[in-house]
Each structure stands twice: as structure tokens, then as C-alpha cells.
Simulated assay, not measured.
Amino acid sequence: MASVSVYNMEGKETGKIELNDSIFAAPINEHLVHMAVVLQLANKRQGTQKAKTRSEVRGGGRKPWRQKGTGHARQGSIRSPQWKGGGVVFAPVPRDYSFKMNKKEKSAALKAALSAKVSENKLFVVDEMSLDAPKTKAIKSLMDNLETSKALVVVEADNKNATLSVRNIPTARGIYANSINVYDILKYDNVILTKDAVKAIEEVYA
């Protein structure tokens, strides 16, 4: 099984933890990882962009001049696309950009992203992040101790203070273990997980 070091909040190594190979040492399928990222970004798009075609622009019902004899090019409407104020040729219309992936594909993509971080030594496990109140300084100090400036901090589902503590750090993001996703894993250089978060991920994806 894959083994990584466990650190405390001071950044000192306190032991080792065995990771589930089916999750943290899985085959890296770049196609599925790319697909998962495109899926997440596409599903976030509102798809409300709209422009008018020549049939939707007000006016232009009368032929501006006769067909022949004026010296001008023939024209049928002042709302044709080549006219100022005319319609757009292939105008965008409201649409749904979302698409779906199979559950097994999503799971394989997430496992591949996590496995890549482990193989690159960019995944850190912290024994716990127990904070009495949101303290940005505590999380920033942890990141400095682990020598990482851009990190995804993953904590167990009930650790609200830890996620709130990350909010004021522009180069970090705090999420719960049940919200972990491929896009965030790839966006940030390093992933910092608590031991409870590792356990929660293994319970779901093992």
C-alpha cells in the first residue's frame, strides 16, 4: 500500500499512514481526468447568452431601394447582417452546456487525480485541524511549514472552522471530503488532507 508521512499543525512529521492503493495508487487515465474537468466547467456555465438574428431585429420590413438602377448593391432589408444595426448571422441562443459522465468514470478520474498527487509527492496528510474558531493564521502557518503556497485543504465534513480559516487565503481553497473533485485537485499545486478526510474518501471510493 502507498505510504505517506503524517504531519502536525507545526509541520513536523509524527508518523506514517497507509493509503488505499485502489484510490491513491490507481492507474492515471488522462482522458477521463480531462473529461471530468470539462464536465465540471461546462456544468457551471449559465448558457444564457443571446443575440438577435435578422428575423428578430425590429424593422427592416421594406426593401431599402429598388433592385436595379441605383448603382448600389442589391439589398432586401436594412436588418441584414452586413448592415449596422442588423442581425447576427449565427447568433448564440440560450442553451444547456451540461453533459454527464458515468459514475465509474467520475470515480476513476478522481482516483487518477489523487494518485498523480501522491506520485508527485504533492499530497500531505495532517493528523488533525482542530480549531476553536476560524483562524486564517493557523492554516497559513501550516502551509508555510509544509512549504506550499498554493494548496487545496480537505477536511472532514463537520470541521467548519478549518474551511472558514482558508477563505482569506487567495492561493488556497478549503472543502469537505464529500465535495472533493478533480478540477480543484488539479487547480492547486498541493493537496492537504486530514486523517479523517482520508478515511472519509476511502469509505466512499474504496
Score class of each variant (00 low, 15 high):
residue 85 G to Y: 11
residue 49 Q to N: 13
residue 187 K to G: 06
residue 181 N to H: 06
residue 142 L to Q: 06
residue 170 P to H: 09
residue 38 V to E: 07
residue 157 A to I: 05
residue 13 E to F: 12
residue 194 T to C: 03
residue 57 V to W: 09
residue 108 A to I: 13
residue 73 A to M: 10
residue 180 I to S: 01
residue 14 T to E: 11
residue 100 K to R: 11
residue 53 T to A: 04
residue 156 E to M: 02
residue 80 S to Y: 12
residue 144 D to E: 14
residue 182 V to Y: 05
residue 20 N to I: 15
residue 186 L to I: 06
residue 202 E to K: 00
residue 150 K to A: 07
residue 95 R to Y: 00
residue 190 N to K: 03
residue 45 R to H: 02
residue 174 G to N: 01
residue 34 H to P: 12
residue 79 R to C: 14
residue 11 G to S: 11
residue 97 Y to V: 09
residue 80 S to M: 12
residue 131 L to N: 04
residue 47 G to P: 00
residue 58 R to G: 14
residue 15 G to S: 10
residue 82 Q to A: 12
residue 70 T to I: 07
residue 185 I to Q: 07
residue 45 R to A: 02
residue 172 A to C: 01
residue 34 H to V: 10
residue 80 S to D: 14
residue 127 D to T: 14
residue 107 S to G: 08
residue 124 F to P: 01
residue 44 K to R: 13
residue 93 V to P: 00
residue 61 G to K: 12
residue 39 L to H: 15
residue 132 D to A: 10
residue 30 E to P: 11
residue 69 G to F: 08
residue 193 L to D: 01
residue 118 V to K: 02
residue 155 V to R: 01
residue 43 N to V: 05
residue 71 G to E: 05
residue 143 M to N: 04
residue 16 K to R: 09
residue 114 L to K: 01
residue 143 M to A: 01
residue 157 A to D: 09
residue 24 F to M: 00
residue 172 A to S: 00
residue 46 Q to W: 10
residue 145 N to S: 12
residue 139 I to K: 05
residue 63 K to A: 12
residue 103 K to W: 09
residue 21 D to V: 08
residue 97 Y to N: 08
residue 67 Q to E: 13
residue 37 V to E: 11
residue 193 L to M: 00
residue 121 N to R: 04
residue 95 R to C: 02
residue 176 Y to Q: 03
residue 46 Q to M: 10
residue 90 F to H: 05
residue 13 E to V: 15
residue 83 W to Q: 10
residue 16 K to A: 14
residue 108 A to S: 15
